[in-house]
Design a protein around this nucleic acid. Structure first.
Ligand SMILES: [Mn+2]
Ligand SMILES: [Mn+2]
Ligand SMILES: [Zn+2]
Ligand SMILES: [Zn+2]
Lengths: 142, 142
DNA sequence: ATTGCGTTTAGACAAAGTCTAGCACAGAAA
DNA sequence: TTTCTGTGCTAGACTTTGTCTAAACGCAAT
């Protein structure tokens, strides 16, 4: 019994469609992981996903969680966020935005792209393309 | 015999002075590490420092390298750079600048601050101060 | 000499993440 | 139907980065 509310099946279909659009074969495990990720925009690390997805019943192994998050990031479904040297966060919010990181508490917030004025960037070196520009504003208690 | 060229002793004095100015007690090990770091502006991870500093003779332990790099970063002598999820880099160039990271090769370059136009930033939340703003331009081979 | 204090150290330990080798399963070929 | 083939999943071993602990050290003040 995994149908929590009436739309669950529909959401599952939407997630499957999303995976297909990103050229990812929608296996049971990948769909379970994607459902957890896209339930709401969030910043999560791999072992949080592992716990979240196996909360009710054990559905996905550790290796698959790591592989799948890597795959999703490569395919542009989620985004890596580097703020904590000890773990890699994944962001299920793919709309362009930046981040504010509370170095003392570990809180990670989104910053609307309009809040940061980014002018001209340096050209990428010959034969290179810009994959992305990450802006992290680190803040701490006074 | 650690005097490589005539200025070595002088450089050592300069490094000691620098540590004092940052309120760091200049122990033998800390000075050795700082000498390695400030020989030239560079991006290094802890175990590169460990190797570098112990190249000629074993001078500093692993624990001290990690502790010292953390201390230097806290005291504002060097800067942490998060670009590789597997390891933390330290930057011995403290002049304000940003970074360009080659995701496929692992090359990390400095970007002059003038190359990136950063306009108004969002205000830090009540009771918080901005510790720093990191801009990383990720590039890869076409 | 003794105490105190900050520092260093070896090595145990923790945690994130990767790798391997076998299994499951689905579709294609025979 | 059976066999073959390729992709994906898995447990658990393993690797690597980094932290912690407990003892020892260096040095100054008493
Ligand atoms: Mn975690
Ligand atoms: Mn390294
Ligand atoms: Zn975000
Ligand atoms: Zn730099």
């Amino acid at each position: 019994m995994r149908q929590v509310h009436p739309n669950a099946a529909l959401e599952r279909e939407a997630v499957i469609k999303m995976l297909r659009e990103h050229h990812i074969t929608p296996t049971q495990q990948r769909v379970d992981i994607a459902m957890a990720l896209f339930e709401r925009p969030q910043h999560v690390c791999a072992d949080q996903v592992l716990v979240q997805v196996n909360a009710v019943e054990s559905l996905v192994s550790k290796a698959t969680v790591y592989n799948t998050l890597g795959l999703f990031a490569k395919k542009g479904l989620i985004r890596e966020v580097l703020v904590d040297p000890a773990r890699l966060f994944y962001d299920s919010n793919m709309t362009p935005h930046h981040h504010m990181y509370h170095t003392d508490s570990g809180i990670l917030e989104d910053v609307a792209p309009g809040q940061v004025q980014l002018g001209a960037l340096p050209d990428a070196p010959e034969g290179m393309v810009v994959e992305g520009v990450d802006v992290v504003i680190r803040v701490r208690r006074v």
